[in-house]
Design a protein around this nucleic acid. Structure first.
Lengths: 250, 250
DNA sequence: ATCGATTTGTCCGTATGTATT
DNA sequence: AAATACATACGGACAAATCGA
């Protein structure tokens, strides 16, 4: 299988061979592929060379390694969930409309001086108190996005109390504060997760993520700044720009 | 420097140390860091362990290795260009407004049967003829985004002729067809570049990219479907949702 | 619940190739 | 041409997670 004469690195040759197996469906989604030792015997390569090939494909998202279990063909995640962004957005409804099961978990909520990025986004003096809360949102039991949220204490004095008792963020704004926040500005960026993000999203640190920053306004007030981190292997975000004919496909 | 007792992998400890040096500007942008051999001597680690740390940071975009020369601190690209998306968008103007120099290059333009994704997006029968053209767009001389564009031949019969003679895509639509196309729908996804994309964008295949798909409409007609691939290390895309008070910061 | 087998993760060592200076 | 620096490939050893008997 491996040609040791042509000058192409063995690990790249092996990576191509593995990719072919996947593309031809000989090894299908979620299936366990031969262990490193097996492949090294089959191809007359050292285990480390096999590991190089496997690592190469893991970074690219084609394979997934699990310590103690083995290496698996990554699940193709094309259009796992197209998450529609709109000015007023509610995760729970959005996911339910797609026929999936949403799940939210507030990881913490604490009052702190506003860090630089948050104070800039909320146009506050740096160091003014904000509530900083982190939410992990799942779809069908899979971690989907992690968000760090910052809200001025001055505007929402008992937000922490409300959050602990309420089911959803939207509900708190709507029922308790009689506000209907809307998105003001969003930014999109591709990158890698930090260690803690990778752990909470249950992805390896080499999986790309989609970072979306948002500011929410209501009644002319900057209510909340959010830094969201979506799993790149699951999430497709979409925006519909106009409401008129023709309807957008998909 | 490296604590061999606490049970944290040496290469992760070293990666953190290197990151600290970078973040504290002790090692600054573009600067060459000590060679693998030097670091392995300094930290009493094997060269392979050092390589693991360096590779880890390369994948994450913090370092850049050049064979035969050394390893360098990657150029920080925070907010290199915030690219504002709006319903009607013109790359050239957009970049000029940010005080940068735009550059466009049409790589090819050919007539082909519509591939599946394009025919779905344009709501055509699969296989109907489309013009497929690829554009590489640079900012200040750096490759910024690569786009594959599909337009129905039926609607724009001599688009290929026009594109070869005109300066910009917008000009062709506006001047020749008297159309002012607008975005209909956009989707965002994080991922990795294909081999050819990585080459054209001059990034290594481990750098994440931001994929943005768009459909353009004018006068109720689906004019163009575009798959754009933005360099994840350079591009931040932004959207302003509302026009009223307060102004968005940044 | 324990133990052993399997599998991936980390770490060290050595040698040689290739690109740059 | 020589020295330097990263790339590839081989070897061995033990750790840590998982799974099934």
């Amino acid at each position: 299988m491996i040609n040791k004469e042509i000058g192409i690195p063995y690990y790249l040759q092996l990576a191509s061979l593995i990719e072919e197996k996947i593309n031809s469906r000989l090894w299908s989604e979620g299936e366990k592929i031969p262990s490193e030792i097996e492949m090294s015997r089959m191809c007359h390569l050292n285990r480390h060379t096999v590991r190089q090939a496997v690592d190469y494909l893991c970074v690219r998202g084609a394979l997934l390694k699990v310590k103690g279990r083995g290496t698996f063909v990554a699940k193709s995640t094309v259009d796992f969930l197209e998450y529609k962004l709109s000015p007023e957005n509610r995760f729970t409804d959005n996911v339910r409309q797609a026929g999936k099961r949403p799940d939210n978990r507030m990881l913490f909520c604490e009052q702190t001086p506003a860090p630089g990025h948050a104070s800039r986004a909320l146009m506050m003096a740096p160091g003014e108190p904000v509530f900083h809360f982190r939410i992990l949102r799942k779809v069908d039991g899979k971690p989907f996005l992690l968000s760090d949220n910052y809200s001025p204490v001055k505007l929402l004095p008992d937000l922490d109390q409300q959050l602990s008792s309420a089911a959803s963020l939207f509900e708190v704004y709507h029922k308790h504060y009689q506000m209907q926040p809307r998105r003001r500005k969003s930014t999109f960026k591709a990158g890698f997760p930090r260690e803690d993000e990778a752990r909470l999203l249950q992805i390896n640190p080499g999986t790309p993520v989609l970072r979306v920053d948002n500011t929410l306004v209501a009644s002319g007030l900057l209510l909340q700044y959010t830094q969201a981190c979506y799993r790149g292997d699951l999430a497709v975000l979409s925006i519909e720009w106009e409401e008129d004919y023709p309807p957008a496909p998909g």
